[in-house]
Amino acid sequence: MIDFSPLHILAIALVFFLAGAVKGVTGMGLPTVAMGLLGVIMPPVGAAALLIAPSFVTNVWQLFSGPSFAALASRLWLMMLGIAAGAIAGARLLTSDAARWTTMGLGAALTIYAGISLLAWRWSVPAHMERRLSPFIGLATGVITGGTGVFVIPAVPYLQALDLDKEDLIQALGLSFTVSTIALAIGLAGNGAFQFGNIDASALAIAPALLGMGLGQRIRQRVSPAAFRRWFLIGLLLLGLQLVLRPLL
């Protein structure tokens, strides 16, 4: 499923280093960048399998770096349940033979996320609607995660709409991404695309991802995060469009 020639190993390491750097600067984006770039050189299901270990390690780190884990877990458990169910079920799409459509789906998810973020489109969720919306947002996020390996739509805009303070938002994103990673791993394993007893290839991506995060945190102190994020989203938009159009050409 995955080509482990020296050139591909180098390419994978560079992808996760870059993805980690983006996460270090912006606080998110490792799965999105990794899936987008790896999708150029391998099928999305192979990229998703490589993503599991580095995504889990970096997201657990982010999850437990804040002060409000118990409160956020209690508040968002319906959303997390929806993510888990949707991702496990949606992984059937990623592991099917329809590589053309999963590549296009990955590209569409990247394009939509980048477009919404560049437009700075924000909405607010009234408190009385949160409990009703959370399971549906979670289920939609899970299905998209299972089908494309991208964790952000619609979870990230929804969590931003809850008007959490900065630290709680970062921790809530860590919770969402961690649940998405675990559920995706279960879904892939259930469909024969990921073996929990043989995660060497995915584990090899942890080191470059962590090195990239360290570099990204240093870059964040020297450049404008807003400017970096804008150019990152423009690149992501172009990459997404390329993945959408490639199977049609």
Rank of each mutant, 00 (worst) to 15 (best):
I219Y: 09
G235R: 07
F228E: 00
D200N: 09
F194L: 11
R229S: 10
G187T: 11
M213L: 12
A203R: 02
F232K: 00
G192M: 08
G197N: 11
F228R: 00
R220N: 04
A226M: 04
Q217M: 10
G197V: 12
I199K: 04
L233C: 07
R230M: 02
R220S: 04
S224M: 04
M213C: 04
G216E: 07
S224T: 03
I219H: 09
A226V: 08
I234D: 02
D200V: 09
I199P: 07
A203N: 01
I234E: 02
A227E: 06
I199M: 15
S224H: 10
A227Q: 11
A193G: 13
P208K: 10
Q195L: 12
A189E: 09
L210T: 03
L188E: 02
L233W: 08
A189C: 10
Q221S: 09
S224N: 04
L233Y: 13
G192Q: 09
P225H: 09
R218A: 05
G192H: 11
N191G: 06
I219S: 01
L204D: 05
Q195V: 15
A227F: 14
A203K: 04
L215D: 01
A193D: 10
I219D: 06
R229F: 08
P225A: 01
A203F: 14
I199E: 08
I206P: 07
I234Q: 06
R229A: 03
F194V: 03
R218S: 00
G197K: 11
R218T: 00
L215R: 08
G187F: 10
I206G: 11
F228H: 04
G235F: 13
F196E: 04
A201I: 05
G216S: 07
S202P: 02
L204Q: 13
L204S: 10
A205Q: 11
Q221H: 15
G214E: 02
A227L: 14
R229T: 04
S224C: 03
N191A: 06
L233T: 04
A209N: 08
V223I: 13
G197I: 06
L211S: 11
L233N: 03
R222H: 15
L210M: 15
Q221I: 02
G197R: 08
G212E: 02
A189S: 15
A205K: 05
G212F: 12
Q217I: 06
G216H: 12
G197T: 07
A209H: 10
I219T: 03
